[in-house]
Amino acid sequence: MDFFIQQIIQGIAMGSLYGLIAIGYVLIYNAWGVLNFAQGDMVMIGAFAILVTHIFWGLPIIPAFVVAIIICAIVGYFVELTSFRPLINSSNTRRLIATIGVGIFLRNLVRVIFGADPYPFPSIFGNTPVKIGELTIIPQNIWNTVIGFVLVFLLTVFLNNTRLGKSMRATAQDREAARLMGINVKQSMSLTFIIASVLGGFAGMLISPVYFVIPTLGTSLGNKGFSSALLGGITSNPGSMIGGITLGILEATSTNFSTSIQASVAYIVLFIVLIFLPNGLLGKKESRKV
């Protein structure tokens, strides 16, 4: 029983990171109407950014995080400027392919710079497990969960209560109407993109002690992120957190049945959810007109 609870805690910790990645997909999907296939690679960029600032440059952990976040924001802005903005009025198919191209570009650029070898990253929060009753919990797991939830909370407050956040939501809802209301649509779309990139990158930074830092880090994490996004309903921010945690728990507990099944769980769940709940757990039904 304890073992099972421990697995669930592990699942929640991984799941909140999936949720963070998923929110990036949701933000960009709502503002730009496209699934950003390069979002997984932003996770990888985040992991490499913290590797560079903390290990290579030797900055203490807090400034290292700040600089890494700035790096992610710059990369995100660059991607938006070069590959998203020129295609703003194109069909979805073309924009989707552009994001695939961006992903290949980023992945291989990092490979050229850092090589294909995996880099280990030390644990940020220490390795001494915390004992609560019969349970032993690794601090990393607690912090991942806490930070994940805090970030989602902050994002929700930002989107609901600040002027900038409101204009971002208005832009996502109806670009033309927002423009007519005097909102700087370009700015708020860029901002959305940057926030999405930073959230993805942040997930990468938190994940780097768990996985090795390699250029292909983002591929599987990206897929899991958007499985979570769809699981929660691609139009909903809290939904993607719930989707992420559901996926994390399913993955962690599926090892009880077979280890080889673990990798496919995300996709099998995704497939089933899409069939029975095409709008996800919390997504709203979209009605379409001719």
Binding site: Y29, L35, N92, L96, N223, F226, S227, L230, I234, S260, A263, S264, A266, Y267, I268, L270, F271, L274, I275, P278
Partner: peptide, 22 residues
């Protein structure tokens, strides 16, 4: 996936591809 459209269909095919790979 007959009822799915656009992005949702695309993601279902991605899941199918990954399941086949596994």
């Amino acid at each position: 996936t007959m009822r799915l459209k656009g992005m949702y269909f695309a993601v279902a095919t991605l899941a199918f591809g990954e399941i086949m790979y596994q």
